[in-house]
Amino acid sequence: MTPTRTVLEERVASAAPAEAKPLARRRLLASCADQPGIVAAVSRLLHDAGANIIQSDQYSSDPFGGTFFLRMEFAGTDHVVEGLAERFGAVAERFGMTWRFGNPAVPKRVAILVSKQDHCLQDLLYRWRRNELEAEVVLVASNHADHREAVEAQGLPFHHIPVANPAEKPEAERQLLELLDGTCDLVVLARYMQILSGDFLRLVGVPVINIHHSFLPAFAGAGPYARARERGVKLIGATAHYVTEDLDEGPIIEQDVNRVSHCHDVGALTRLGADVERTVLARAVGWHCEDRVLRHGNTTVVF
């Protein structure tokens, strides 16, 4: 005998709301010369399109003649968000904006380059496994073979591209470019102890983030902990920055420090510094992947 529902059960079922379809989210990052009406125009467009603003951050370098920066996150139906980029073009043209939309549902593909020291690599892989990074690590490449087993144990491809001497660097960079072409949205130098050429940076086609084991601009280049010890510093730090042709002078994303004393030798400084390096790099990578960093000349605005 087929069971039947009571009248009360039928009324409850008919009154229950249909399960709501999750809304699509997008992020808007924009910058332009500061002027009245920017936020109003953007908000009006989103409102008229049927999108709802979830979070909004803005900054002006100077209200009179400065540069305006905006990061907005909004939600709407698939139909709403898919048509917004075209409609936003008119607002962007009106204010002379540089702008882009980001999609939180599509994690950025990250390629990691590393040399012998693996503390930053291991930290990024740990955070990636725990879904603490809004990113998808797609590969690891190194000029040393040391980390193959550890990386492949995570189910990731490992590529050994040696650079035994300076004469091999052009061929190594050619192999790296071939490996990275179309596979990633961001390259992370997790203590990759090779200087990338200007040609490589122009051809790779995606941002490159480096961690430098110094509180830049102090002690740029090689051996910063030894030079810090010689100088008798009381603070050591690390700097995550975008890579440019000018060594260790790209736009800074994040920095942090540890307090030290005359009792710390170079080995102790290096161990303490490693803790700062991995946390600073992880923050920078996370913020970039969450579309929180806007570049402005040789500086950044981080929301």
Rank of each mutant, 00 (worst) to 15 (best):
A90R: 15
L70P: 12
D146H: 14
A90Y: 14
G89E: 13
A145W: 14
N52S: 12
E149D: 13
I53S: 10
G66Q: 11
T77Q: 11
R71F: 02
A90L: 13
A150I: 09
E86Y: 03
G83Y: 06
R127N: 03
E149L: 09
R94A: 08
P104K: 00
Y59N: 13
F69G: 12
A90V: 14
L46M: 10
G37T: 04
C32D: 13
A150Y: 11
R127C: 02
A40H: 07
E19C: 05
A111P: 02
N131P: 00
R87M: 01
A135V: 01
V39D: 15
A51N: 11
S31R: 15
A90S: 15
V80H: 10
L29S: 15
M97S: 13
S115N: 08
L133M: 07
V114W: 02
A40S: 08
V39R: 14
S31P: 04
D48I: 03
E134A: 13
A141V: 02
H47C: 07
Y126G: 00
A33K: 09
D78M: 08
Y59H: 15
V106I: 11
H119V: 11
E86F: 03
A40I: 00
E149V: 06
D78A: 14
Q35S: 15
Q55M: 00
A85G: 14
R25A: 05
